[in-house]
Design a protein around this nucleic acid. Structure first.
Length: 404
RNA sequence: GCGUCGGUGGUAGAGCGGUCAAUUACAACAGACUGUAAAUCUGUCGCCUUCGGGCUACGAAGGUUCAAAUCCUUCCCGACGCA
């Protein structure tokens, strides 16, 4: 069971800086959670993750359940030990795969909406996930075999995976889902949260794991607020220790309303519980979400972008594969303290990418994770010393739109 | 010297009379990516364009045909075989 303490609140906003204490260490919040879906941060060793001063690693239940199997991970002593990560850990419930393998499958719909999506829940061709009130029927993307995930089975799998913080099984809806569907789905996610909590309490009698409920509701204020109120009421408290230890905020927003919509939720959630914004990790979004009261963020963006050659700099992202970098013998970013920038040039990275060398992914991931981890660290410091607004303004003035 | 088979866009390699500016792959040039179906995916890729189309192209030069990368002749180049 975790302890969460708030050290400083930023006046006039919902932002706060604090600490989460887990049995495997302390997380200074706001914090960026590194994603290691299959008990590995793609292309990186645990030692490299440590060297970045990452605080927490999140793995995915769906993936580890399928391969190598939850029992094997349990035998290994949990996914953290399995991968040689001894700090705090989290697992996602598999709920996101209801979206990524379901409504999103083959539909070029992404988690962050543009706002122009057409409401649509009928495009079901080739989907690998089907949602019912009981749970989600997955067709494994690995071998096509069928697997039913329920709130109960997700809790059981996450129990075996052994993370410090786990998530209730939820339905992550598509940005294209209309209001009526979001409303119906929200009721289901609420029901699943209660089922998750019940099963979690049966399994975790020693309070080893902390369970986060997930707030859904799409882009609709009334649904988001309803979810925050109803699930917030189930938070653990002095007289009710078997409640939720934190909250995840999931589902879809547009980039523009990410701050405001998250704020609707956090204004209503119990203040003394950590809030994890699921799957968000671009600089602008991080600033807005912190300001709207979020404490934790996980995102695949830094590592996936890195593997695809898109690298963060203070002046925006650059595509290292562009022709202009083939003879650029400066670091990705002048002054960057990451291993990659301390030892290698843009030209070298460009060469590794063009040659499809595996080291390209590693070096690029080190850089992007360093960039995002340091960014969130600096955001935290700026809350503590009351310079958040200035820092946000200065950072974004350079980062947004400016091309190198 | 004789014979056989070949010479196609940056590369490899399809096409073998019209539907061919020419399949495909790679390379190249750009773009996308937010709880990882992702070391992935998308677009462009002869020149010009008012995006309708126009022009020049399949070793070179001629020729046959309404029509040629595709057929014929000669030449040049390459591989192999025989001398």
């Amino acid at each position: 069971m975790l302890k969460f303490s708030i050290h400083k609140k930023l006046e006039g906003t919902l932002a706060r800086a604090g600490e989460i204490e887990t049995k495997n260490g302390i997380i200074k919040t706001p914090a960026f959670v590194v994603v290691g879906t299959k008990a590995t941060v793609k292309s990186m060793t645990a030692e490299q993750i440590r060297s970045l001063s990452a605080q927490v690693v999140l793995a995915n239940t769906y993936h580890l359940y399928l391969q190598p199997g939850s029992d094997i991970v349990a035998q290994a002593g949990g996914f953290g030990k399995f991968m040689d990560w001894h700090g705090p850990t989290m697992t996602d419930s598999g709920g996101f795969q209801a979206f990524s393998l379901g409504a999103a499958f083959g539909n070029s719909v992404s988690k962050v909406a543009t706002g122009d999506e057409v409401s649509n829940i009928s495009a079901t061709s080739g989907q690998l996930a089907k949602v019912t009130d009981e749970g989600v029927m997955f067709k494994s993307h690995l071998d096509g075999s069928k697997h039913l995930f329920t709130p109960e089975s997700s809790m059981e799998a996450q129990w075996k995976l052994g993370a410090d913080m786990i998530f209730a099984f939820d339905e992550c809806t598509s940005p294209t889902a209309p209001y009526e569907y979001q409303k119906k789905s929200l009721a289901r996610t609420y029901d699943w949260a209660k089922r998750s909590l019940a099963r979690h309490n049966e399994l975790d009698t020693d309070k080893k794991q902390s369970l986060f409920a997930v707030i859904q509701g799409g882009r609709f204020q009334d649904l988001r607020e309803e979810a925050a109120r109803t699930l917030g009421a189930l938070a653990a408290g002095p007289e009710h220790s078997e409640g939720f230890d934190g909250f995840g905020i999931g589902g879809s927003f547009t980039k523009d309303d990410i701050g405001t919509a998250v704020g609707w939720v956090n204004a209503l959630l119990p203040e003394d519980k950590p809030r994890h914004l699921l799957g968000i990790g671009e600089p602008l979004d991080l600033f807005n979400a912190v300001e709207a009261g979020c404490d934790l963020f996980d995102c695949i963006a830094p590592t996936r972008m890195a593997r695809h050659g898109s690298l963060h700099t203070a002046d925006g992202r650059l595509n290292i594969k562009n022709a202009r970098f083939t003879t650029d013998f400066t670091p990705i970013e002048e002054g960057c303290q990451c291993y990659t920038c301390q030892h290698h040039t843009r030209a070298y990275l460009a060469h590794l990418f063009r040659g499809d060398e595996m080291t390209a992914s590693t070096l690029a991931s080190i850089h992007n994770l360093h960039f995002i981890l340091r960014l969130v660290e600096k955001i935290r410091e700026s809350i503590l010393d009351d310079t958040f607004h200035q820092y946000k303004k200065d950072f974004l003035a350079r980062y947004i739109k400016k091309e190198q």
